[in-house]
Design a protein around this nucleic acid. Structure first.
Lengths: 198, 198
DNA sequence: CCTACCGATCGGTAGG
DNA sequence: CCTACCGATCGGTAGG
């Protein structure tokens, strides 16, 4: 309640856009949740699109921030531990009931009007995670945790793992999701480290 | 044009529901595409929900039909070939621009009103594919193509592969999707057959 | 299969 | 931040 009105609008709109999508969310709903009337929204945002865009921007920024690894983690953990930690940071973001849901909607069903913008933001975010992934894998090869192998197929397979866990978060949203994450990750890792003497 | 009207309605509605979703599709749109006026639809379907439900039913039935393996295939192919064929049958269904799109919408964003129905139909379809999967894996173990191992983690990992490919179909809808499928599948298979002497 | 119409709701504006 | 209102569109019905 101490937040400025335009922040409260953004917060409630975020929740509604996540739950009901762009067209499913009416400005009347938003205003009601904030405790004001619909026309008053226009004092803070130019229109519905303006409000929506500002929320998408925040979503992608938050994702990048939440999945990044600290340099301490990068130095002290083994390759497998690092990769598992990284995987879980991404998975944890999707576990967020609001952010995860909005992320799913946005990435899988971009509104026609914002398609280009969303695509750009997504590719930027993906490039960011790919960088982290590369640094983990390169360090792993140097330390002998994983054998020498072409990175491209490996990264395809990893993204497939990540995307699979993304879907399963929503398909099987249950207490044993963590078990599924572990199983799928262990299977991925088994193939990754093949050839290394233990 | 030779099709009965209620079939033509269903066909155009399927396309529209896939592209624009339940709320994004108006009965006016449907009627216009069929070449009649909106109120005439009610001579063939009770209402919008009735039309939508009958389409969902058809979608799930088609999926089951398309992914099933023939007994000839089951007998003559190796375990790896069988699993790859099965994977590609599923992937091919998603490649269908209309059916794949509607499947994605329905499974990932079930309309609140039909949530229970959709959930049931999905679980039924999943049980069907799990049966096929089991029969492939069991035969593979008997023939020594894959080592003895608990099936549960393996099936989790496989579904994660499948769900990952499901997302990637829509994220990277491009000419090199087939390459990504191959990479991800090979990585999965590498971990699956570990321990077998070749 | 049609015309004519219903109440409800949408995003957005005027004017204060 | 409000009241009052706009044109457009929604699913659905009456009556033929």
């Amino acid at each position: 309640m101490t937040l400025p009105t335009h922040e409260r609008i953004k917060l409630h709109a975020l929740k509604l856009f996540a739950q009901k999508g762009y067209f499913g969310t009416s400005l009347n709903d938003v205003a009601t949740m904030v405790g004001i009337k619909k026309p008053s929204l226009y004092a803070h945002y130019k229109n519905k699109d303006d409000l929506y865009q500002s929320i998408l921007k925040e979503l992608m920024d938050l994702f990048s921030k939440r999945v990044s690894l600290s340099s301490i983690q990068l130095e002290q953990l083994s390759t497998k531990e690092l990769l598992y930690l990284f995987t879980n940071k991404i998975v944890d973001f999707w576990k967020d009931d609001t952010l995860g849901l909005l992320y799913k909607r946005t990435v899988l069903f971009p509104e026609e009007k914002f398609r280009t913008t969303i695509q750009e933001q997504f590719l930027q975010t993906e490039a960011y995670t790919t960088d982290i992934l590369y640094s983990i894998l390169e360090k792993g090869q140097q330390q002998g945790d994983i054998p020498k192998q072409p990175f491209e197929p490996l990264i395809h397979a990893y993204y497939c793992l990540i995307d699979g866990l993304f879907v399963q978060r929503f398909l099987y949203s249950s207490s044993d999701y963590d078990v599924k994450v572990k199983h799928a990750f262990e299977h991925f890792w088994k193939a990754t480290e093949i050839g290394v003497e233990k």
